[in-house]
Amino acid sequence: MGMEILQLKDVSLTLNENLILRNITLDIWQGYVHAVSGPNGAGKSTLASTIMGLEGYRDISGSILFNGENIDGLAVDERARRGITMAWQEPARYEGLLVKDFLLASSRSKDLALIRDTVSSLGMNPDTYLGRALDKTLSGGERKKIELASILVNEARLVLLDEPDSGIDVESLERIFEAIGLLKKRGTTVILITHSLAVLQQADHAFLMCHGEILDKGKKDKIIRYFENKCIPCGHKNIPDEWEPVRGR
């Protein structure tokens, strides 16, 4: 399908003596929108945190290659400088920090005009928002869009978006999807972490994850079918009782 920008080889992660990621092997192709989907507790966000190298998520077995380079053990900022960034499901709040300063810090070009255009493209008036603090006076949805703006101006090569529709209203959701489209148009590789069909529809390619494992992969329509049937039978506790604990693919 294309060149791999990110490869996970047999990656496992244990947190608090619980095996959270189990021998994950996957390839992420450059310039495509990928989705990692699955039920709550599947390990999707943990996978994103592991790829980003967040504190507490770096002590893995297996290896992670970005652009062919092994990035195991690299800190978050070192991975970011190589071109990986991430948007959290619930963005951080910063007391007193202005949206403008946050976006300038996130921006690779430090171009204020570009920042203003980006904020506008997400349906927000830059004159209103750039001077506001990125704190609890902004709604969750507003902070989500500001964080997405920070991703857009960061100009990373690989973007992890954890539940990008979380806390977002219907109108704003269209803007988020447009932003994902813009990232793809720029040639940015995107990994969507989601359990939402609407978000999954934005992907070119998807992985189905459950209980810390990748159960299947393929074009999004294939993975969507699992969701239309609620999921696939397996032994994980998320599966309704009446289903047989048999893993079928």
């Binding site: 967040l54 978050v76 960034t85 910063y94």
Partner: peptide, 21 residues
């Protein structure tokens, strides 16, 4: 970690957070 995921070093991130505070 959010700021570091945008490429700021730990010291730069701390400085920006304190500046905001």
């Amino acid at each position: 970690q959010t700021l570091m995921s945008r490429g700021l070093s730990e010291d730069e991130g701390v400085e920006l957070i304190i500046k905001g505070l």
